[in-house]
């Protein structure tokens, strides 16, 4: 599996072959607070880089989930729809959102590595 990469919209992404797994970062869940609702893209649908691909809602507000790369949705994580609190518990592990079959791996090139993202998250939240 590839190195974890991060987007400015606070998604994480890993790549295995041509299938990417995408979720939201721990930092994002801390900003959102208790997550109580999650909506995922339709399996089989196509999503575009930087487009919306889902929604999360906390007790306070709704936020869009964006996809950092384009591709076809090949799998979604129903367990976070049934129990959204899982997203707060394990955001960068078991609580992944969706898997994409991607065409252009170069879309990952401009994303941040862990060190860069941590710095970005710290700067934007203060």
């Amino acid at each position: 599996m590839s190195e974890v990469k991060f987007s400015k919209e606070h998604e994480w992404i890993t790549l295995e072959g041509d299938v990417a797994t995408i979720g939201i970062t721990k930092h994002a869940t801390e900003m959102l607070g208790d997550i109580v609702f999650a909506e995922l893209p339709q399996k089989g649908s196509n999503v575009e880089k930087d487009g919306t691909a889902g929604v999360v809602e906390s007790t306070k507000a709704a936020s869009d989930v964006y996809t950092p790369v384009s591709g076809e949705v090949v799998d979604t994580n129903q367990s976070i729809v049934d129990d959204p609190a899982k997203i707060n518990e394990d955001p960068e592990g078991g609580a992944w959102f969706f898997k994409l079959k991607i065409k252009d791996t170069s879309e990952l090139d401009n994303l941040m590595n862990k060190e860069e993202y941590d710095k970005f998250a710290k700067e934007t939240s203060s």
């Binding site: 607070g33 208790d34 109580v36 906390s58 007790t59 306070k60």
Partner: peptide, 9 residues
């Protein structure tokens, strides 16, 4: 204060 460290729930 909107919330403290433990969160709204």
């Amino acid at each position: 204060p909107i919330q403290y460290s433990k969160g709204i729930i």
